[in-house]
């Protein structure tokens, strides 16, 4: 059990308003850490701090430390960090280009792959991994905007895999998907944890219970409880957790 990400006493603010309060949490290598909690609980802020997407928000400020493999993430180049920590957003947003270019965009920019033949192989590999290859292999040059929502989300997963990150953050990855696509994405996440470390933020409590190894419950910017998923859902230590997972509030 190696800690991949270690968060120490992290507090985050928008316009000085505290949205995440002295968080201590660790993410273990090759696990899926589920993060659940009602709206305004700080889940998304938590994710956007780990991949430093919040750097773009001028009203945002923070205290505390986050380490990735022992490196302070605020000392690493933001671009470099985002290469190591891939993100999947709630809304699947393909870039406005072809399916093929969507996948090769980042590796090309980052200089990960040089030769055309390597690119082809990489595209096939990640599309197969995201179980999308069979559906799109004949139309790789078609615009990614014309795919269905579920396909777009899987394309986004393939796109993240193409930069070969160490950690993948899923930000409510199934909120816009039908049950069948959701099942596919969940299956995929379980496959992916063999190679990657995954943080799954979700509004869907059941999804967390199906997929994650450990689950953390956030409420009003505070971490209420984190434990093995089986334990947290069967015998939560805190009353708030119990109320939330049984649907009594939130």
């Amino acid at each position: 059990m190696v800690d991949k990400i270690k968060i120490e006493n992290l507090s985050c603010y928008y316009n000085k308003k505290c949205v995440l309060d002295s968080l201590d949490l660790n993410v273990v290598e090759n696990e899926i850490l589920g993060v659940i909690g009602p709206a305004n609980s700080g889940k998304t802020t938590f994710l956007r701090t780990i991949n430093r997407m919040n750097d773009f928000d001028v009203t945002y400020s923070r205290k505390g430390n986050v380490y990735l493999d022992g490196d302070d993430i605020f000392d690493i180049d933001a671009e470099n960090l985002r290469r190591r920590v891939g993100t999947l957003f709630a809304m699947p947003i393909p870039l406005p280009m072809s399916i093929y270019d969507n996948i090769t965009y980042a590796p090309k920019r980052l200089g990960l792959v040089a030769k055309k033949s390597d690119l082809d192989g990489m595209v096939e590999r990640v599309l197969k991994y995201a179980s999308l290859w069979d559906e799109v292999k004949d139309r790789l040059d078609a615009s990614a905007m014309k795919m269905s929502g579920g396909q777009q989300q899987r394309l986004c997963i393939a796109r993240v895999l193409a930069i070969n990150p160490e950690v993948i953050l899923f930000d409510e990855p199934c909120s816009g998907l039908d049950p069948i696509s959701t099942a596919k994405v969940e299956e995929l996440m379980i496959e992916l944890k063999e190679k990657y470390t995954i943080v799954l933020v979700t509004n869907n409590v059941k999804q967390a219970s199906r997929v994650s190894d450990r689950t953390a419950f956030f409420l009003m910017g505070k971490l209420i409880e984190v434990d093995k998923t089986g334990k947290l859902f069967v015998s939560p230590k805190e009353k708030e957790t119990e109320d939330y997972i049984t649907g009594r509030f939130g």
């Binding site: 997407m53 470099n80 870039l95 406005p96 980042a106 986004c156």
Partner: peptide, 12 residues
């Protein structure tokens, strides 16, 4: 979201 998508992939 386009920008966010590209940035999240490590583009400068």
């Amino acid at each position: 979201q386009y920008k966010q998508g590209a940035l999240a992939l490590g583009a400068t």
